[in-house]
Design a protein around this nucleic acid. Sequence first.
DNA 1: ACTGTTGATGACAGTGACTGACATCGACCG
DNA 2: CGGTCGATGTCAGTCACTGTCATCAACAGT
Lengths: 187, 187
Amino acid sequence: MGRWEPNARKRLAEAALQLYSEQGYEQTTVAQIARQAGLTERTFFRHYADKREVLFAGSPLQELFVTAVATAPPSAPLVDVLGAGLDAASAMFAGRREQVLLRQSVVAAHPELRERELIKLASLASALADALRDRGVPEPTAALAAETVMAVFKVGFDRWITAAEETDMAPLMRDLLDELGKVTARG
Amino acid sequence: MGRWEPNARKRLAEAALQLYSEQGYEQTTVAQIARQAGLTERTFFRHYADKREVLFAGSPLQELFVTAVATAPPSAPLVDVLGAGLDAASAMFAGRREQVLLRQSVVAAHPELRERELIKLASLASALADALRDRGVPEPTAALAAETVMAVFKVGFDRWITAAEETDMAPLMRDLLDELGKVTARG
DNA sequence: ACTGTTGATGACAGTGACTGACATCGACCG
DNA sequence: CGGTCGATGTCAGTCACTGTCATCAACAGT
């Protein structure tokens, strides 16, 4: 046993999500979160850069997505590479619907948190573009594909969240990837 | 002549852009912006919700984009409707390269400003999806098309900004819209 | 056992973004 | 001429976030 209780970061993240969802993001002060986690406000900011980051840090989404894209068969067509990324991303949400729903209801309710979510996805898009370039996909296709697959992910995630009951996310994403054809189809 | 100098909002926006670009966004206080505009800090916040919004409020981008989509010929294929939106958006940047470059260099340099930019584009995507649904485009195609055209816009805008010399934005966007086919093409 | 170092934390003061409440005063209306 | 209105100023307050220094258990080396 150390001098302090372990898992300070985790305790802070859990306290934050609970308080944000119970009494609202704006109504929650960082001092409250820290107190509930048995720490001080100053220590909160040693673990998380700001009041928003506590809901986003530590997500493996980007790594899973990028790794899947980077390790897809070299000869695979671009769509399939993107599909592999979407599959990997989808997998991390399997069986965690309640948890994800709670978190997302908090994020959706506060523009500051939405902003943070969007910049995380933009960072993911940028990392995906890098991975595609590493695979030999030329510009501007790489950047366009990265942004486009994020479009699919956003719409798919929203539909998964909004669905009445729990469903597999991956088929949803695959359907949307096919639907892309309708967007580009010429009259 | 009124009691106060006119165009308070405009003076604040110009002072903000100048100070942000000269001495950095974080190094600039709202009190400085207000003072340079001949006003007080409190008045700044009566015109703009926060220190970031002063760079974004008043842009006609969303209205131009959405109006073009809404007023495209009813029988036009989806891609052409999106193309019309991109054309309208592109038009508002014509001949304003220096101005746009300055502003974008400020925004790109500060994550807080990037976040705000991203949520504005997300709002635009949402408005576009509404406009497409109004045209009779069914879900999930409408949402997907809206997010996808934002992908095109983001990549196109970045390329327009990055280009060595001034070019027409519209052809750039049209090329990317065509490139979308490569993303969805099956092996 | 003694001592020096390290790392996570606490304590505390400070800055600046943002808000609420109230006062001011020229313009405009009747 | 009196009353209302709207944009602004003034001021006090909250809270996110930062810099700095102190604390103290754990650990390593002697």
